[in-house]
Design a protein around this nucleic acid. Structure first.
Lengths: 204, 204
DNA sequence: ACTCCTATTGACCATCGGTTGACAAGCTCG
DNA sequence: CGAGCTTGTCAACCGATGGTCAATAGGAGT
């Protein structure tokens, strides 16, 4: 006699649906410009239900980006083949390709990163692992010389800024940008060594 | 017979007091962690009065940082004496000294910058003027080659990241860091030129 | 057809930024 | 002394936010 007031789904289905609704909105708008009410409404569901599946807004955000983050991380992962420089080149290629494909989401993530602890965690965790990877490769176990650490950290900042500029202007082919980033990496190491001769570089 | 229920101040005095209360709190905490109610309370004043002097929270924020921003900007301003490299060196020195003295406030500003349009305006305006200054010096009027523009933008990212690392670890003398940043600047230009031979560098 | 579990909801809370209007206290000038 | 302008308080309100809770209704199992 009456159409059901709502449809009842399996837990996994519903969770997945809410996750995707959240991911879609978070990818398009800044974190604080999206309210939990909006997400719930977009999924055609009440707010308490959304909270039932994701206990807080940061939780939802985290979950929504977890897959993408894992995907991106796997793209960066060194394959273990070829010279270190080749590996870096390949990783950068993957990184840039991923960003080119998810430009909007990437921009919003970077934008949300500064304020939201969860996003910060994501971005800084990623950055931290990248730094460890690079410094490990360069210093081989020993704690890195401060100037080298700062230079590598600086280069990562160079990365983000240059990539942001690239996505904004879109007037440089990807390979060209990759080469610039690679060259900048080498240059960053050299300038660090120039300031602290004790730094030993294990790659040409 | 009774102590006055409140003290009555001149408009300028009151404004100044509220401004300083706001600046103090904004320098210590993140923007969104401070409410207008708290600021009013900290100044020993009612919320409507605070709104009477500053019509919105962003307005107060903007006003609170306007002086500091102007001060910082004047420190950066090229003095017009000496070789460009010397000027850059002096500007970096001033920049680093300022940050060393206002570390906490600087960190919070950078952190607030991502979300709050007014803070973004401040930071990006500053960055934009710096870029224009540098690119003007380098390209002399003509629109800059994309690769050069990206490299300079990247270097500014290097700046921020390296300085952040520096304030976190505090294990590098200021002059050493300045030299690293200077060297990185030169290197950034060279790598850009290496990727686009049409780039002409007007400084050695 | 009935039970029962749980997926789902409407109503609620405190707090936020911001506004309104009425009224009190202080200063100045006649 | 008293009028009137300025500077301030207070309490209540708005629409929004993130988050919570008890009650309800969908639908599978019997």
């Amino acid at each position: 006699m009456s159409t059901p007031a709502y449809s009842r789904l399996q837990v996994d289905e519903r969770r997945r649906q809410l996750l995707e609704a959240g991911a879609a909105l978070f990818a398009e708008h800044a974190y604080e410009d999206i309210s939990m009410r909006q997400i719930a409404a977009a999924a055609g569901v009440s707010k308490p239900l959304l909270y039932h599946y994701f206990p807080s807004k940061p939780d939802l955000f985290k979950a929504a980006f977890a897959e993408a983050a894992a995907e991106l991380e796997s793209v960066i992962e060194p394959r273990g083949e070829g010279a270190p420089f080749e590996q870096l080149s390949a990783a950068l290629d993957g990184y840039l390709a991923w960003i080119e494909a998810h430009a909007q989401a990437w921009t919003n993530l970077m934008q949300s990163a500064a304020r939201l602890p969860e996003a910060r965690e994501l971005v800084e965790g990623f950055r931290g692992r990248t730094m460890d990877l690079v410094l490990e490769e360069l210093s081989g176990g020993e704690p890195p010389r401060p100037l080298l650490r700062t230079a590598v950290r600086g280069w990562l900042g160079y990365l983000d800024a240059a990539i942001l500029d690239w996505t904004e202007h879109a007037d440089i082919p990807r390979e060209k940008l990759r080469d610039l980033l690679l060259a900048a990496f080498g240059a960053a190491l050299l300038t660090a060594q120039q300031g602290d001769p004790e730094i030993q570089l294990k790659l040409g």
